[in-house]
Nucleic acid binder design. Structure first.
Length: 490
RNA sequence: GGUCCCAUCGUCUAGUGGCCUAGGAUAUCGGCCUCUCACGCCGGAGACACGGGUUCGAACCCCGUUGGGACUACCA
């Protein structure tokens, strides 16, 4: 019995495959990203957008941005702006749109009329309260809380407080031939007559997406797998409309560390929050693309490599956990890879004293940033670390000052000031020679013995870039000044 | 509860019946480098959820169990 059913489904599946074999492969590929503007662009949405963007770019197709703003209560203009900003920051340009569903109401209405006229949809005047009661009653009776079809054959026309429902087949099954997950079968008996148009005349999600995807010529619907259960209903709507089906690809969800769907309580969710935390868009993109997709053992991808290699075939089926640590590693990687010149304007916004930063000449800034690149994981870290290069008087870390700015350093510092002051060629090489050959040998001190006190004098901290690079960048005057000031602490 | 999906190191993943005494990355631990902190380099530990099949042979195929997730609205 079960076998017969499976077999039936399989044959049906084969039939569907052959039905829509070619169009999608022959024609230009068109994908879309349809966020609903009820908040910022989050990590999960960004990855979905990225997959669609990459897929379109890989195939030389088109990527459409569509704003699904039919939820009038929750949609806001701020959200639209936030989403657009995030798309721009991630450098995912769209070829068409943004389309707004609220500006397409006449289109949906036209399709509704067609469906009602053909008998595939009908008006229903059941009130939400009544529906709720009936659902509760069904649950109590141990039945599925489905719409009971009360208005199906009442032949109601348009009117106030009336929704339009889709008439689903009573029997049979629909197969979703998912590009990522493979064939998935749904029995129609599990589905119910969903609302296509609300009583205020605005279409619901399931109807609007189908109409939009049909009219915009979408060939590949790549979205989160939280939509899998909606898909059979949507497929039925496509068929009722006489439209050909796109390819569906459902990408597994991104989970939080506790393995539940990623949400605010897991911390930063918004793409732009990562910008504010000093992340580079390249790092986020690279991290996101590897969440659920892979290309052998490769971890680091340029944008061009991503476009070249991206394929739905290599998207995994299982959900993945968001790991901030790996994102951080990638960010550090991209900070190291970037040129100091491109980093400079980005770092500026993370510096406490922007005026002091802006006052420094570009070459100085570049050299300073270069010394910070291998030791910064974020731009925030770099913005803080660059401070000692900019200030007039460094602030000493109390513990560091107490430990290293001691009276026994008086003589070494005096000699150092003397030697550095007399240097003809002020560069890293000569500086190191002063330290090593003169001070270390002459005074019998280990380099480490003198390095830390000098480091504290110059940076205020025991942790910093290499001593000689710092001295070189700071310049003779500033170095002498800081050394003398430190001696006041002895 | 019902429907659907998923299951390899802590995490992201490679793996599509023999190349697997399971590879890479991250995180972690140890060492090297060294003027500090990093970076970098070298090395260690660390996984096929479980039980049945199929097969000469299974991480890979089938069934079941367990575990996790999604959906179940006049939200999207």
């Amino acid at each position: 019995m079960e076998l017969c059913y499976r077999l039936g489904c399989f044959i049906f599946y084969l039939k569907q495959c052959s039905q829509r074999r070619s169009p999608a492969f022959m024609d230009k590929i068109i994908t879309r990203f349809p966020p609903s503007p009820t908040g910022y662009l989050h990590i999960g949405g960004a990855r979905t957008a990225l997959f669609n963007w990459l897929f379109a770019r890989h195939h030389g197709g088109k990527f459409i941005l569509r704003i699904e703003d039919t939820d009038r209560v929750r949609s806001t203009d701020e959200s639209i702006k936030a989403i657009l900003d995030a798309m721009e920051w991630l450098d995912m340009g769209w070829d068409e749109g943004p389309h707004y569903q609220m500006q397409r109401l006449d289109v949906y209405r036209e399709y509704i009329d067609r469906l009602v006229a053909s008998g595939r949809a009908y008006y229903c005047d059941c009130s939400p309260e009544d529906l709720e009661k009936r659902r509760a009653a069904a649950m109590a009776a141990g039945l599925k809380p489905k719409y009971d079809g009360r208005c199906r054959d009442r032949g109601l026309g348009p009117g106030p407080n009336r929704v339009v429902r889709f008439r689903l087949p009573d029997s049979g099954a629909t197969v979703l031939n998912d590009v990522i997950k493979g064939p998935i079968f749904f029995e129609h008996s599990e589905l119910d007559d969903l609302v296509l148009q609300r009583s205020d005349g605005i279409p619901t999600y399931n109807f609007a997406v189908v109409v939009d995807d049909v009219t915009m010529g979408i060939t590949h619907v790549i979205r989160g797998d939280d939509h899998v259960n909606n898909t059979p209903r949507q497929i039925l709507i496509y068929e009722a409309l006489g439209a050909s089906l796109p390819q569906f690809g459902h990408v597994p969800m991104i989970l939080g560390p506790d393995k539940t769907r990623l949400s605010k309580r897991h911390g930063a969710m918004s793409v732009m929050a990562y910008k504010d935390m000093g992340y580079l868009p390249e790092a986020l993109i690279n991290y996101l693309v590897r969440l659920g997709w892979s290309h052998g053992d490769q971890e680091i991808f340029t944008r061009a490599e991503l476009i070249e290699h991206f394929s739905l075939a290599n998207v995994g089926k299982s959900p993945s956990v968001f790991d901030p640590e790996k994102l951080l590693w990638l960010n550090a990687h991209y900070i190291k890879e970037s040129s100091p010149e491109t980093l400079a304007p980005l770092v500026e916004s993370f510096v406490e004293d922007r005026a002091a930063f802006a006052a420094k000449p570009a070459p100085f800034l570049s050299k300073a940033i270069e010394t910070l690149q291998p030791r910064s994981h974020t731009l925030v870290e770099m913005g803080a670390a660059i401070k000692f290069y900019l200030v007039e008087d460094v602030a000493y870390d109390p513990a560091a000052a107490k430990k290293f700015l001691t009276p026994e350093m008086r003589e070494p510092f005096r000699r150092l000031i003397e030697m550095i002051g007399g240097l003809e060629m002020f560069n890293e090489e000569n500086l190191e020679r002063v330290f090593r050959q003169v001070v270390v040998e002459e005074m019998g001190l280990k380099l480490g013995k003198i390095a830390q006190p000098v480091r504290v004098a110059l940076t205020g901290s025991t942790m910093s870039p290499g001593l000689f690079e710092i001295i070189d960048i700071l310049g003779k005057d500033a170095v002498l000044k800081r050394l003398r000031r430190a001696m006041e602490n002895f």
